[in-house]
Amino acid sequence: MSIITIEKKILEKNEDLAKLNREIFHQKNILTLDLLSSPGSGKTTLLEKTLEILKGKIHPAVIEGDVQTDHDAQRIAEHQIPVVQIITRGGCHLDARLIQDALNKLPLDEIQLLFIENVGNLVCPAEFDLGETEKVVILSATEGDDKPLKYPLAFHKATTCILNKTDLLPYVEFSVDTFRKNALKINPALTLFECSAKTGDGIEAWTDWLTHKIKNG
């Protein structure tokens, strides 16, 4: 019998590729945000509203990750910006290799801001580094104010959190104070935004933050 000592990271290959992606983003000066949420949080609508406001001010691009269909990419393409659809065919998360392949299809020299809309899932995508600058977690008012406690890793790894569908707050059992308390317990450094992508209420705080981040590095 022999013992072979290995001591290496299980996801080493993904981390190596994520590092290469990160170098590209750094060289090209692209702010890359990995958007994480449950299915149905309103990510694509939020993204569309964000693109409308940033139009003419910033050059964005989008990588869409979905288990099936290119519906979301079609919605984004209507905004006349570069978009690549990744269909994972059952895969529950994007990984660094999928992003590397998608980057080959984007005009990287013309992009300042890249949104990666991850597969709707708050568990698996939190574990995979894509090389992004930051992870942004989105939840909607219909999902419950205890969501950060149920999916701590996503909230711990994100730098920013957006509470969407605030227009529905009068109709659902959701305490914004409890949500804030729960989110900041998991991650005291989290930047929080509250908005309704549908009505546009509160969304400019988010787009101003994005613009400021791009202009000031």
């Binding site: 019998m1 022999s2 013992i3 072979i4 000592t5 290995i6 001591e7 290496k8 990271k9 299980i10 996801l11 574990e127």
Partner: peptide, 11 residues
């Protein structure tokens, strides 16, 4: 951590 530490092999 998400580490693979060691293997036990037998002949």
């Amino acid at each position: 951590e998400l580490h693979i530490e060691k293997l036990e092999l037998v002949s």
